[in-house]
């Protein structure tokens, strides 16, 4: 028994290791939150479960690579790249919405799933055509390449930026959603697009805007993660699964739920790796299964009438 505990939980006696895992869990949660909140925003309004959301994240990473090369040498290139990569992916999402998605809002959900799944396949091939099958490395900005000491333990400075960006975007989202007219329109559209249209709002345009904002969030997450993981095929599948876990656990359409569930899933992964490296993601699925059994609408979601 003691041997078992020592083998699997020995790390608990090392506070700096615990702190490190905690912090990298928080950083991981930020990527998940950016992706999941976009996914959730789009679903809340359009009722479309967008499988291609992970592909948009992957494109964010690839565009990070491309924009960095285009901008090479210009001052503040990393920051400009973040903005341009997000915007590029936002435009991509907008184009997909205008050309394809808006035709199927009233279709059977199975057709909606088929369409967004088709996007996944097509987009992954397009990415391979443009960027090849090799991973593309994106350099960290010079100032953030090192590490800082937190309670004596070294922690990558770049992850601090990620945490700051996640919190910043979360705050902006909250303000936009609850304190601006656009946010009010989005919340109204989640309840009844027909009523909102009958009151004179250009609902088709609003849907396109929502798609662009949601996609832009995925793009930002992809661009932010690129310097850590390199942009490569397969990014789309791994993030979308975790994002779905987050959204199911947190409750579709709830920002707070997405934030807390991201934290939960990312910390489970971070600490799970220390205990049972091989099955750390399984822990997240277990949580999801439990939530689905006892609160199918998620921890913070609203029960459908």
């Amino acid at each position: 028994m003691i041997r078992f505990l020592a083998e699997y939980f020995g790390w608990l006696t090392d506070p700096s290791l615990v702190l490190m895992q905690l912090l990298s869990g928080i950083a991981g949660a930020m990527f998940l939150f950016l992706v999941a909140s976009g996914l959730s925003l789009i679903f809340g309004v359009s009722r479309i479960v967008n499988f291609a959301h992970g592909s948009l994240y992957m494109f964010g990473a690839y565009f990070a690579y491309t924009w960095i090369r285009v901008l090479a040498g210009s001052p503040g290139q990393f920051w400009i790249m973040l903005i341009l990569a997000s915007l590029t992916v936002a435009v991509m999402g907008g184009v997909l919405e205008v050309i394809f998605v808006r035709r199927i809002y009233r279709a059977d959900p199975i057709f909606q799933l088929l369409l967004t799944f088709a996007f996944v396949l097509v987009l992954s091939d397009i990415a391979k055509i443009f960027w090849g099958a090799e991973g593309k490395a994106v350099p960290k900005p010079g100032a953030l390449a090192g590490s800082v000491k937190i309670f004596g333990a070294p922690f990558p400075t770049y992850l601090l930026l990620v945490v700051a960006a996640g919190l910043g975007v979360g705050l902006i989202l909250w303000i936009v959603f609850y304190r601006t007219r656009w946010g009010r329109l989005v919340r109204a559209a989640r309840h009844s697009r027909d009523m909102l249209a009958a009151l004179g709002s250009d609902v088709p345009r609003l849907f396109t805007e929502v798609f662009m904002v949601g996609s832009g969030l995925a793009g930002l997450a992809g661009a932010l993660v690129a310097p850590i993981v390199t942009a490569a095929p397969g990014m789309d599948a791994s993030i979308i699964i975790e994002a779905f876990v987050v959204v199911v656990v947190g409750g579709l359409g709830s920002f707070l739920g997405a934030a807390l569930a991201s934290l939960l899933v990312a910390e489970l992964k971070a600490f799970g790796t220390l205990v049972f490296p091989a099955i750390s993601i399984v822990l997240a699925y277990l949580v999801m299964a439990v939530v689905l059994i006892f609160r199918p609408w998620g921890l913070f979601g609203r029960r459908e009438e």
Partner: peptide
């Protein structure tokens, strides 16, 4: 016409 145009 779509509803929002009729409303307008």
């Amino acid at each position: 016409l779509p509803p929002h145009k009729i409303s307008r």
